[in-house]
Design a protein around this nucleic acid. Structure first.
Lengths: 142, 142
DNA sequence: CAATACATTAGTAAATGACGCAACTTTAAA
DNA sequence: TTTAAAGTTGCGTCATTTACTAATGTATTG
């Protein structure tokens, strides 16, 4: 099972927004797209989904952009995954009503719960990319 | 993320084999396929994968069939999933080397570990379908 | 050796995923 | 108030994956 790229991109762009959350400035799609190596038009689709889920806020018009709707420590992987994939992270397929289908389905529900629980313990704070010194600076003051 | 049907079918057919493990008889593809509502030819592909993973044993030729390679309580969901999907249950996509890609990938590795851990706690014994009385019998002695 | 049952491989149709594109709306700034 | 920057929306499309079907091969038993 591959994690859908859209979900991964969502995590990445949210991590970007988290890294400048303190400053309070909006970030423009163009810049975010460049940082993550995506086309702006495509990234917008992801950001739209995240906005509808209430994870980011957008400002339209000139000097518009995006920012996190809440504190990064308050946005979990579980919420992101739910926003991008709907209901449950992993769900048993409809199947064909086989004899033991019901038991199998129930088992995977439990797996999904364990997964969601772990996702709830990871926040955007855990995803913020480490500071990389620009060229010319070979030291950093923490 | 939908659990691939192949993986679900694998769980189902293994549950079937588990339900008659005590008897020690082999089960034929034809019968198993009927019980799970699949075409025999298709089910064979799944069983072949499970055999290569060492979860079932097959006997060819007349009176051939399949049986579990080990005790049902000793075969976990984790093994089944690994057999069907390879390495890790959920894996971060290759992506495009975005700025925060590495952190995101690491986070999902943790989620995968939590998932695998839970899967390791579910065995075929937990998947055995409950006994359903045949028509005519409206009671069961436990 | 013939019947039976598993094994393997190739092929295909449908669904899904990952985008690109274009036309529209909103809003800050000149 | 005009204008242009920037977000919004929906459609289209190409490639990949999935879920099979089918045909042919191989082993085992009587």
């Amino acid at each position: 099972m591959r994690l859908p790229l859209k979900t991964e991109y969502a995590c990445q762009v949210l991590a970007q927004l988290a890294s400048t959350y303190a400053a309070g400035d909006v970030r423009q799609v163009e810049e975010l797209a460049t940082a993550e190596g995506l086309s702006p038009n495509y990234l917008v689709q992801i950001l739209t989904t995240l906005r509808q889920a209430g994870l980011v806020i957008s400002r339209r018009g000139k000097n518009g952009g995006y920012l996190l709707a809440r504190h990064p420590g308050n946005i979990t992987l579980a919420e992101i995954a739910t926003a991008m994939e709907g209901g449950s992270l992993i769900e048993s397929s409809p199947g064909n009503g086989g004899k033991s289908a019901e038991m199998v389905r129930a088992a995977w529900v439990q797996v999904n719960e364990a997964m969601m629980e772990r996702c709830s313990g990871i926040t955007l704070n855990d995803l913020i990319p480490p500071y990389v010194p620009q060229d010319g600076a070979d030291w950093v003051i923490f």
